[in-house]
Design a protein around this nucleic acid. Structure first.
Length: 472
DNA sequence: TAGCTCGTTGGACAA
DNA sequence: TTTGTCCAACGAGCT
């Protein structure tokens, strides 16, 4: 395209940001950039909350692009067909994008790359989702890692590549291709009533992500190690959904953490280790993609888990009506905020898979529909870790006791009161929001009486342990 | 290679 | 109330 160089498509995946974006930088270095997001419902069936959150992220990115004289081009359909059509419409000579590591995305990447190159178009994928590429981290014997600690010991000393700045020059093309209207995609449709509730509790976009990062470094990092487990305390970075959509990159987080540590801020190490866990989950998904669907350890295939997702007890779990305080509070936090405290995730997962003896897949699917920070690798690894079927060495008798956990990590019952309205005279907004988020057909009311536990803690634990030791 | 050490997140019970 | 010990015994990764 004339004197301004080659026009490139920046194909946006899970990297809705301008900073530290290798694909955007590579495109911008060649000339005009056309940012394009392809919504491909057939190859990526996102749940209700992730779709809602995607819309927020797309809006924020569109505004950021507009401020720099660019537009966000939205198209729906098969990625390769859409990109081909755009190349033809715009005369673009290159397509750049950020790599993903789930099996479906890898197949799409490979086919897009091969087809475009065949047609003489430069097609390049770039790293940026993780601290380190999953294929580059290997044990001394050349295998992939199956245990986190040695994995972390291997990558932590390596440091990470410094983040890239926002490209200085972002040039618009001579003419913009037509774009869908985001509103027509109805990404919030599946959330129904819940969308308005979620909107009160989350903030999307690159600027919001950096706001959280700064707040964390300045006010939370020093007490993170102890506070991160206290479920009623705002002790974490709260960046999980921003990370899930790539509004901030892990390399930027790493660099910010290192700089803060250098400036004397303490406590960043355990936080950066958590970013390492995110890498580890993707490392495992890359090397053992069956982890997303099936037991990572085949030995668990014979375990007598129920998979009745519509069972009344599973419904009670989903709607925070198990009668177990910690579990119910956490499941309601999920309805209202689209997130759940990490410790609470372990507790509700343990209760579902052990006390209730329901397959982790049922819980994993529910989280995939409800979490605004949904990430396939993190979600599958987390569920399999708790269930015992995953790559981890926790002994099978490790069954969380929700009551003990609540005493330990919510001794003043602030978390419980924040989310459970029943029995409170002046229930807080957060607890009442739950009734606005759930379907009216659920027929729940804050005036209801707290139910008795659907599975008692003692019997549940004993039944699970018996089933585990009988496992052939 | 064979042996050694260690493994994110726990619970129950006894002293 | 707090602290220690056992639960049951695998397998990853290193040396």
């Amino acid at each position: 395209m004339s004197e301004t160089g080659t026009t490139s498509l920046w194909w946006i995946r899970r990297d809705l940001r301008l900073m530290d974006n290798a694909a955007l930088s590579a495109a911008a270095a060649r000339g005009p950039v056309i940012p394009v997001f392809v919504h491909d419902e057939r190859s990526e069936a996102l749940g209700a909350a992730p779709l809602w959150r995607l819309e927020q992220s797309l809006r924020a990115l569109a505004a950021d692009l507009e401020a720099r004289g660019l537009r966000l081009v939205l198209r729906r359909g098969d990625a390769l067909e859409v990109l081909r059509a755009l190349v033809a419409e715009t005369g673009a000579g290159a397509v750049h994008w950020g790599r993903l590591y789930d099996p479906a995305s890898r197949r799409i990447d490979a086919s897009v790359k091969a087809a475009l190159r065949d047609e003489g178009v430069t097609a390049e994928s770039h790293a940026g989702l993780l601290l380190h590429e999953p294929m580059t981290v290997k044990t001394k014997l050349g295998d992939y890692y199956k245990v986190f600690s040695p994995f972390w010991r291997a990558i932590e000393p390596l440091g990470v590549a410094p983040p890239l700045p926002v490209p200085e020059r972002l040039t618009a093309p001579a003419a913009w291709p037509v774009s869908d209207d985001l509103a027509d995609w109805s990404l919030s449709g599946a959330m129904r009533r819940g969308a308005a509730v979620l909107a009160r509790h989350s903030s999307a976009g690159e600027a919001a992500a950096w706001g959280k990062m700064t707040l964390f470094v300045e006010e939370r990092a020093s007490s993170y190690k102890a506070a991160r487990d206290m479920v009623a305390t705002a002790g974490t970075s709260d960046l999980s959904d921003n990370l899930a959509y790539g509004e901030i990159s892990p390399r930027s987080i790493w660099a910010t953490g290192q700089a803060a540590t250098g400036a004397g801020v303490r406590g960043l190490e355990p936080f950066l280790r958590q970013i390492g866990w995110r890498d580890f989950a993707h490392h495992l998904m890359y090397h053992t993609p069956h982890m997303l669907e099936d037991n990572w350890r085949e030995g668990w295939d014979s375990f007598p888990w129920s998979e009745e997702a519509e069972d009344a007890k599973v419904q009670a779990w989903k709607y925070g009506r198990t009668g177990v305080d910690f579990v119910d509070a956490a499941m309601r936090e999920l309805w209202v905020t689209g997130k759940m405290h990490n410790r609470a995730r372990m507790v509700v997962a343990s209760y579902l898979t052990k006390h209730m003896m329901v397959h982790w897949r049922v819980g994993e699917r529910w989280f995939a529909d409800q979490l605004i920070d949904f990430d396939p690798a993190n979600n599958a690894m987390g569920w399999q870790w708790v269930a015992g079927s995953g790559p981890d060495a926790a002994p099978y008798f490790r069954v969380f006791n929700p009551d003990t956990q609540l005493q330990k990590f919510d001794p003043e019952r602030r978390y419980f009161r924040r989310w459970i309205a029943e029995g409170q005279r002046d229930a807080p907004e957060t607890a009442l929001d739950f009734y606005e988020a759930i379907p009216k057909s659920a027929g729940l009311s804050p005036k209801a009486i707290r139910p008795q536990p659907i599975v008692g803690l003692k019997e549940g634990r004993e039944r699970a342990l018996a089933a585990y030791s009988a496992r052939s």
